[in-house]
Every structure is written in C-alpha cells, then in structure tokens.
C-alpha cells in the first residue's frame, strides 16, 4: 500500500519535473543505459513469475527478452519490475519502466486516456470463473448470491459487475490487491468464486491449489481480453521496436523458423526467411537496430509457438490449448504483418 502511494507520489513528482518528452527519448535512453526495464506481473506462472533459481520466466517475460535481444543481441539485458494491477500504468507513465508486459487488457479508455499505447496482442484471453467442485455449480448463470474474489483496478472487476447486472444476479465482491492474498482468500473458502482471465485461472489452479482436481473452471467466458504489451506515448521508434519484436516471433513460427533449425535456415533460399533473418534486406536498420535482430530473438527466446508451448502450453503445467492463440493459418488469431 505504502509502496503504491509512494509510486503514485513519485509519478506526480516525476511528471512535475520532467521536461516534455521528445520523440526517440525512450529508445535513446534505453540504448544508452544498456538494458531494458520491463514491468511484469509479480507472480502468474506461465506469464511472468520468478522460477526456483530466481530467474523470471513466462510468455510476458519472453517479450521483454525479445526486445532486449533485438536491441542489444542479448536477451539477458532486462531488469524486471514486479507490479500489481494498480501500480502498472503509473509505473509506465512515470518512466520507471520502459515496457509494460503484464497480461494487460487493451480497451478504448486505456488506449486513449492514459498517455500509453497498446503495441499488439501476445495472448488472446477471456474472463472466466473458478469454483470448488463441491459447490456443484455447472454454469456461471447459477452464481446468483455468490461471494466473488477479484483483484481491484482490473477490467475483470468491471466485467464481473457488468455480467451480474446483465443477468440480474447479486454478488458480494471481496477485493484484494495482492495476487497472493486474493488467491489465499479464495482457497481458504472466503469466497465461492475466483474470477480473472481464463489463463490466470488455469495458472492459479495448476500452481497454487491445494489439490487442483477440487476446482473447476466454468465453461462461460464473459469477456474478450486481448492481452499485450504497452509503451508510453511520445516515442514511435520505441513503439515500433516492441511491436516488431513481437511480430518477428509470430512471423518466424509461420515461416517454420525455430531456435533449433535457425542456423540451417540462414542458408534458406526463401526470400521471406532471408529478410526475417537479416540475410537479405535492411529490416533491422529500418528499426534502428542490427540486421540480425530477429535472428537474435529466435536464437534466445524462440518463435511464438515455442514460447507459448514452453510457458503456458503442452510443455508447461498449465496445458492451455492454443485455440485463439494459434496462427491464422491454423484457425487462430495470431497474425503478424509481413516483414518486408
């Protein structure tokens, strides 16, 4: 709490003293500093959480690493800052972090009134409900009168109120800011229901439940939650770099380039592959980085599919199917603009 107030106060002070931002300021500052400061979630397994060795892993963390790999050729040049839902925008506005990669939902209000921009979508999600099996609830429509655990300052909190209003049901919210605390409250039985993005539910069930089989995730998804990274207004070159770091991973998967066959692919005669890997063309130069930018990303982080499977898919505890997050060529929504 104190930390957040301090942060908000710091933001006010920072905004008070800072000179107006110039185009290119973030890009140049990051380059001069030699590392990226990346705001992440403090603990959603699969998205961003420190592992047993204290190293940050997850699909959101991979995005930070990808940007570092593109800019410095070294994915380890990232400083991670764990943020709560309520701290995240202030931290980015005040310049404490350079990129916010913290399963954040893009909405019109956020895109327009925060002085921030959404870069793209690295995970298509929807809001769901999790309940203990013993309550025998089969559908979200049966939740009238329930007590619901939710984190404040999220779109989740608003969707929840909207959904119960639309279905003329009552509920009692228990609103706790720290993820660890809200999860503890749910598993101790303080609430009947825990609601957040379906991926977050799967993550929580797999990693925090005393016995994962005692909990069910209800079939209804009550919202669209396009999750993606954000940057500050005022530096379009920085915006471009983050955007194309994400696209490079998706484009690589679409073209069959992964971290294992990468060096063979350098010899490929396919002009698309050649452009992505910097064998041909000046794509990197256009972004203001080395022409090997995408090569470096795939070398250290892998393509989008590899990152997905390793963190949230079949290679992880969460086992979330690709569905919407599959490539557009395979019936999903992941579609990168051409590297050309």
């Amino acid at each position: 709490m104190k930390a957040r107030i301090l942060l908000a106060a710091a933001a006010s002070v920072a905004v008070s003293f800072a000179a107006p931002a110039f185009a290119g300021a973030t890009f140049d500052a990051v380059k001069a500093r030699g590392s990226i400061t990346c705001g992440v979630n403090s603990g959603v397994a699969g998205f961003s959480a420190p592992d047993s060795k204290g190293e940050w892993t997850g699909i959101d963390v991979d995005l930070c690493k990808a940007v570092a790999a593109a800019l410095f050729g070294d994915a380890s040049k990232v400083k991670y800052v764990g943020l709560t839902a309520q701290q995240r925008f202030t931290a980015l506005q005040s310049g404490e972090i350079d990129v916010l990669s913290r399963n954040t939902t893009g909405t019109l209000t956020r895109d327009t009134s925060l002085g921030l921009n959404f870069v793209g979508v690295n995970f298509y999600d929807g809001q769901g409900f999790m309940v203990p099996k013993k309550l025998n609830v089969k559908s979200a429509k049966e939740l009238g009168g329930a007590t619901v655990c939710v984190q404040p300052g999220t779109t989740t909190e608003l969707n929840l109120a909207d959904y119960f209003r639309a279905n003329k049901m009552d509920f009692k919210p228990v609103v706790i800011e720290k993820l660890e605390e809200v999860i503890a409250a749910f598993f101790s039985g303080r609430c009947d229901v825990y609601t957040t993005d379906a991926s977050g539910l799967a993550s929580t069930r797999a990693t925090s439940a005393p016995n994962p089989d005692d909990y069910v995730i209800l079939p209804e998804l009550i919202s669209k939650e396009p999750l993606g990274p954000m940057v500050r207004h005022g530096d379009d070159q920085w915006f471009d770099l983050v955007k194309w770091s994400l696209y490079a991973m998706i484009e690589a998967e679409e073209n069959g380039i992964d971290s294992k066959n990468l060096d063979e692919m350098l010899k490929s005669t396919n002009p698309v592959v050649q452009r992505i890997l910097g064998v041909n063309g000046d794509m990197g130069k256009a972004l203001g980085v080395d022409n090997k930018w995408a090569y470096n990303i795939i070398k250290t982080v892998g393509n989008y599919g590899e990152s997905y499977e390793r963190n949230v898919g079949s290679g992880s505890k969460l086992k979330i199917p690709r569905n919407l997050n599959n490539l557009w060529t395979k019936g999903g929504l992941q579609y990168a603009w051409p590297v050309r």
């Binding site: 107030i5 933001a11 905004v15 309520q86 925008f89 506005q93 009134s113 300052g153």
Partner: peptide, 18 residues
C-alpha cells in the same frame, strides 16, 4: 484508500486519486 486506488486505476487519473 482502497476505493480511491481502484478509481485512479480505472480512470488513470493518479494525481486526482492521490
């Protein structure tokens, strides 16, 4: 504090909220 925090987060107006 809890409600003003939620408000400042939903509206993005940190200075007013604090």
């Amino acid at each position: 504090v809890s409600i003003a925090n939620t408000t400042l987060n939903q509206t993005g107006q940190a200075i007013e909220g604090v």
